[in-house]
Amino acid sequence: MIRYTLKCSDDHEFDSWFQSADAFDRLLGAGHVSCALCGSSEVEKVLMAPAVRPARKAAAPLTAPANPAEEALAKMRRAVEENSDYVGMNFAAEARAIHEGEAPERSIYGEARADEAKKLIEDGVPVAPLPFLPRTKAN
């Protein structure tokens, strides 16, 4: 998504979000972009400053959590990784096998498609999404 500051022929400025720069160009060319205030379709982009995140404190190490929520997530990740087996994309099958007594009971984590997770929940298999990506998928 990209946000542009726009201005109409009557000098009204307004912001709007677009799927991409190409999507904006296509919509503008087709006459589907109009002023939010007066409805004019004579609209152009206005020069705007990019949104830049402020730098972290220089004294803080790069891997240090920036706030208590990040610290809690890091602690949760460590606990899950230390006390569970990572089963990757086999999560749905392995969770079902454990639930049905076909595999040894143990804590697992991994990945599942949305339809697989929904089916597990519908079938009473106790699962929950984790608030972080597996290390193989995280930056």
Results as ranks from 00 to 15, higher is better:
Ser40Tyr: 05
Ser40Val: 05
Ser41Arg: 13
Lys45Cys: 02
Lys45Gln: 14
Lys45Pro: 02
Met48Ser: 14
Met48Leu: 09
Ala49Thr: 12
Pro50Cys: 03
Ala51Cys: 05
Val52Arg: 13
Arg53Trp: 09
Lys57Ile: 05
Ala58Phe: 06
Ala60Gln: 15
Pro61Thr: 10
Leu62Tyr: 05
Ala64Lys: 06
Asn67Lys: 02
Glu70Tyr: 00
Ala72Trp: 01
Leu73Lys: 00
Ala74Cys: 01
Lys75His: 14
Lys75Thr: 12
Lys75Arg: 15
Met76Asn: 04
Arg78Ala: 15
Ala79Pro: 00
Val80Cys: 03
Val80Asn: 02
Glu81Cys: 09
Glu82Cys: 07
Asn83Thr: 15
Asn83Val: 01
Ser84Thr: 11
Ser84Trp: 04
Ser84His: 14
Asp85Gly: 05
Tyr86Ser: 10
Val87Lys: 10
Gly88Cys: 11
Gly88Thr: 11
Ala93Lys: 12
Glu94Leu: 09
Ala95His: 10
Ile98Ala: 07
His99Gly: 09
His99Pro: 08
Ala103Thr: 12
Ala103Val: 11
Pro104Ser: 09
Glu105Ile: 09
Arg106Ile: 04
Ser107Ile: 01
Ile108Asp: 07
Tyr109Ile: 01
Tyr109Glu: 01
Tyr109Arg: 03
Glu111Cys: 13
Ala112Gly: 15
Arg113Glu: 15
Ala114Glu: 10
Ala114Ile: 10
Ala117Arg: 12
Leu120Arg: 05
Ile121Pro: 01
Glu122Thr: 13
Gly124His: 04
Val125Ile: 09
Val127Phe: 08
Ala128Pro: 02
Pro129Lys: 12
Pro129Gly: 06
Pro131Met: 00
Leu133Pro: 04
Pro134His: 08
Pro134Asn: 10
Pro134Asp: 13
Arg135Cys: 05
Arg135Ser: 11
Arg135Gly: 05
Arg135Trp: 03
Lys137Ala: 15
